[in-house]
């Protein structure tokens, strides 16, 4: 019988060496809703050795159309999402360690919650948390993969501290709620977080496998209704960044 990762290892840019790197890595998924559920599932199945899931919420019925790690029993049980998610992911891959943390990431606990991370995946649901996450990852020197969505569109960005622009290099001023284009006003098309969460997992796998050449370089804009994918190139800084202090 072929090994668990035989088909993934046959993908030449990863290979057995990439697989060993994944096994030796830790990914922290901050927010395990729709985006985080998809990305965490793909990283667990890919064999990322350690996963830490960070989310204080409990599943609700109106989560189920897009949050694939939860079912009606979880809604009835009202256990934290991270507990249900850890059980699902451990059942999918018993060879990895999954650590559930039912807390919200804040500026004053970020260093503890992100400790040991090789990469961080953004599964948050608001701008403020993402700016906290950006500052924390920049100061700790941890690469992170941003995605955000509403309606039928969203964006994707890979942040490598010290190597390229961070979230706040792109958008210096933190957007304050209420936003004009949000889940509250535009809902979420169910397949959208599947697309973006998969793209986040894909970038994380490249970061962990040391495949920097294959990474997304600019900001990927995704629209699904009708479909349109395109990448905005980074035009160069016009001022030093308030978060990372850089001028890429």
């Amino acid at each position: 019988m072929a090994g668990r990762y035989a088909v993934q290892e046959r993908f030449a840019p990863l290979g057995p060496e990439g697989q060993i790197r994944l096994a030796g890595s830790m990914a922290v998924v901050v927010g395990v809703g729709a985006l985080g559920g998809h990305s965490a599932q793909l990283l667990a199945r890919a064999g990322v050795g350690r996963l830490r899931l960070v989310d204080p919420d409990r599943p609700t019925l109106d989560n189920l159309h897009r949050q694939v790690l939860y079912d009606e029993l979880d809604v009835a049980a009202q256990a934290p999402k991270v507990e249900a998610a850890a059980a699902r992911l451990s059942a999918a891959n018993s060879g990895i360690a999954v650590e559930p943390v039912a807390e919200a990431l804040e500026a004053d606990n970020a260093a503890r919650l992100l400790d040991g991370a090789s990469v961080v995946l953004d599964g948050l649901d608001n701008p403020a948390g993402r700016y906290v996450l950006n500052r924390a990852c920049v100061s700790l020197g941890i690469p992170w993969v941003h995605a955000g969505l509403a309606g039928s569109s969203g964006q994707l960005l890979v942040v490598r501290p010290g190597k390229g622009p961070c979230l706040q290099c792109w958008a210096p001023e933190e957007p304050r709620e209420p936003l004009k284009h949000s889940v509250a006003t535009h809902g979420v098309l169910g397949p959208l977080p599947a697309v973006l969460g998969a793209l986040q997992a894909n970038e994380a796998i490249k970061l962990l496998a040391g495949a920097g050449d294959a990474l997304l370089k600019g900001m990927l804009l995704v629209e699904l209704w009708p479909p349109r994918f395109r990448e905005l190139a980074w035009p160069g800084a016009s001022a030093p960044c308030p978060a990372c202090g850089s001028r890429f």
Partner: peptide, 8 residues
């Protein structure tokens, strides 16, 4: 003009 989005 594009809307960045912050749901997840």
């Amino acid at each position: 003009f594009i809307n960045a989005a912050f749901g997840g």
